[in-house]
């Protein structure tokens, strides 16, 4: 058997080895179990039960005026080139397990491939029961998320404006990924 054949056989073994390894890695990828929760239904995570009871979409400045939270508005946050909106989700939160912390509510919203967290100071400002420390299991709170056109581009922004954008709130990522769907949004 000459050198050329040996080289081809070695190359073949290498290719098969690589292909096998790549196949193995992809077959054994540790993906989370995905749990999609329609709006109105509840999901349990971290000892708490979450339910989205209402959703509103505001123009950026209108939101701060409506909730009397202009002091939380950063000057110059918006440029003349890019737009922003605020989506406010009303959550009912119930404690299921004793050791769970009902203030563990910082869950990101995801739309297209962008995630946003909330501003915790702003959240406290628009929820008197948080500010006053009277929030209890079974009550509702409003969590605002600012959506920037700059993050998602002009094409995707059209979906936001014509109310066809799909939003989900993420509760946990591994081993179970809870995706709370936000489908019924009131335009303010």
């Amino acid at each position: 058997m000459n050198k050329k054949w040996i080289a081809w056989i070695c190359a073949g073994i290498l290719v098969l080895g690589l292909a096998g390894r790549i196949w193995y890695v992809n077959q054994n990828a540790r993906l989370p179990e995905i749990n999609r929760v329609p709006q109105g239904e509840s999901a349990v995570w971290s000892g708490l039960k979450f339910q989205i009871t209402h959703a509103e979409l505001w123009d950026y400045e209108e939101f701060y005026k409506a909730y009397d939270a202009e002091s939380h508005m950063f000057e110059g946050e918006l440029s003349s080139e890019w737009d922003a909106k605020v989506i406010v989700l009303e959550f009912r939160i119930d404690r299921i397990e004793e050791e769970a912390d009902t203030l563990n509510i910082v869950n990101p919203i995801v739309y297209v491939h962008t995630r946003n967290d909330t501003d915790t100071f702003l959240t406290a400002a628009i929820n008197p029961n948080l500010q006053e420390g009277t929030f209890r299991s079974g009550e509702t709170i409003r969590i605002p998320y600012t959506i920037f056109e700059f993050n998602i581009g002009r094409q995707n922004w059209k979906k936001v404006e014509n109310m066809t954008m799909q939003y989900t709130v993420r509760l946990g990522n591994y081993p179970v990924r809870n995706e709370m769907l936000v489908t019924d949004i009131e335009k303010m």
Partner: peptide
């Protein structure tokens, strides 16, 4: 990279991303 990392979609929540939607 394919020999030790799977070709799965990138989760935007993960902060593993370097790109934005735009």
């Amino acid at each position: 990279s394919a020999c030790y990392l799977p070709a799965i979609p990138t989760d935007p929540v993960s902060l593993q991303t370097v790109l934005m939607d735009r």
